[in-house]
Design a protein around this nucleic acid. Structure first.
Lengths: 221, 221
DNA sequence: TGATCCATTACGGGATTCCGTAAGGCTGTT
DNA sequence: AACAGCCTTACGGAATCCCGTAATGGATCA
């Protein structure tokens, strides 16, 4: 069983709920923070003290407030952690159910579990912990099938940036000019058209408008 | 002080947190439900028994599960309640911070308070209750200024439908044809262009693509 | 009835997107 | 060197969007 666990969750009530559940599971040491920066500090310190955390349970989105944060939300925190430590287990516990977001967490950041905050969220979180102890991954049923079926489209950072520019109102020609100025390749109008055409096919969109609507729903931009 | 309060909130932990807070405020009778349909039933029954609720505190989004619901989420519930009862106080307690959504809740459904789920969420909820008891409205600081400054654009159902069709990939000409078939007026391509032009100006969008991106962010569609 | 207002519709032209075809350039293989 | 494969770029035409201006039609009021 995990010995030392950190909870990063801004909402007090949820944080408490998770804490109680971990106690019931018989975990000895559970620490709680409400900010990602605090989470990183604790993890850092624990590692230096040679008493590292076994497991991090973290939310994705943290509401901003007066405390400006270096790592304002979950993905930022996780990315930073993974620079030092590929081993610590990480479970994301979030309301987010957008497939692409979850996919990226597993692929890029090698998280070990993803649990949706639902009515059964705490129970699933408990299952996740036991699964991960056995070396398995865990994905909440809410996103599991969507994750496995939805064939893997190869959307890269260039595509994301392109869609983002488009959604900000730039014309394809303006994007082309911008890319030429900033030495981003491919930059030609023709290439941009081609790439957008591919994206439209991938996402079954009739035109650029629908494409943007779809990728916004997916949480891609 | 309110005597009889109902909490509608699907997440168990949050529901508990709110319940505890209400107890501390000294409210005598607090009931809790995790589904909107249950909420409506209770409210209905309480009214028939001549012991109606003074106050409803409800979430906006309820996760779907195996129980199919007549009123799947907060707005549906609130709309239904307001058909019978314009007097019961309603506070929405939600993570949602999209201005247009909040605006619609106040304008169309005459809710009495809106509290954002944040770190200080419970404290704000408590303030909301005391404000509303005094006959005032309450709006969380997170959305308050945005709500008051952002001048009131007159976006109607026709506009929303138009934007929705656009986001689903229909061309303006297709929308025009569709409107003509279904006797929706105005239906001409020219009128549709004109309306979209107005919307682009209202929302400061360069083109239809950005327009859709913006209204999606605002939660309008 | 005539004047006015306002919403809807019509039309034209420039800008942009969409989509096919083809040419140019780079890489790796034989 | 010659070739194939792939990515990038170029170009042209059709469709669509964008944006004026102007005509139509209904409602109201004097």
């Amino acid at each position: 069983m995990f010995k030392k666990v950190l909870i990063a969750e801004d909402m007090e009530d949820i944080n408490k709920g998770v804490f109680a559940m971990l106690n019931e599971l018989g975990i000895q040491e559970v620490q709680q923070v409400q900010y990602c920066d605090d989470a990183y500090m604790r993890i850092q310190k624990a590692r230096l003290d040679k008493k590292p955390f076994d497991l991090l349970i973290t939310d994705l989105s943290f509401k901003e407030d007066y405390r400006t944060q270096k790592y304002p939300n979950g993905p930022d925190l996780i990315e930073r952690i993974r620079q030092d430590d590929r081993d610590m287990k990480i479970i994301v516990y979030s309301i987010e159910d957008k497939i692409q977001v979850v996919k990226k967490l597993f692929n890029s950041y090698k998280i070990n579990g993803y649990v949706c905050k639902t009515r059964r969220g705490l129970k699933n979180l408990s299952s996740a912990i036991t699964d991960i102890m056995k070396g398995k991954k865990y994905v909440s049923p809410e996103v599991d099938n969507a994750l496995s079926t939805h064939s893997d489209l190869d959307i890269n950072d260039y595509d994301i940036a392109l869609l983002s520019h488009l959604s900000k109102g730039m014309s394809q020609e303006e994007i082309s000019d911008y890319y030429k100025k900033n030495n981003i390749s491919p930059a030609s109008l023709s290439s941009i058209e081609k790439r957008l055409n591919k994206l439209r096919v991938d996402f079954n969109a009739n035109n650029a408008i629908q494409l943007i609507a779809i990728v916004k729903d997916l949480g891609l931009i």
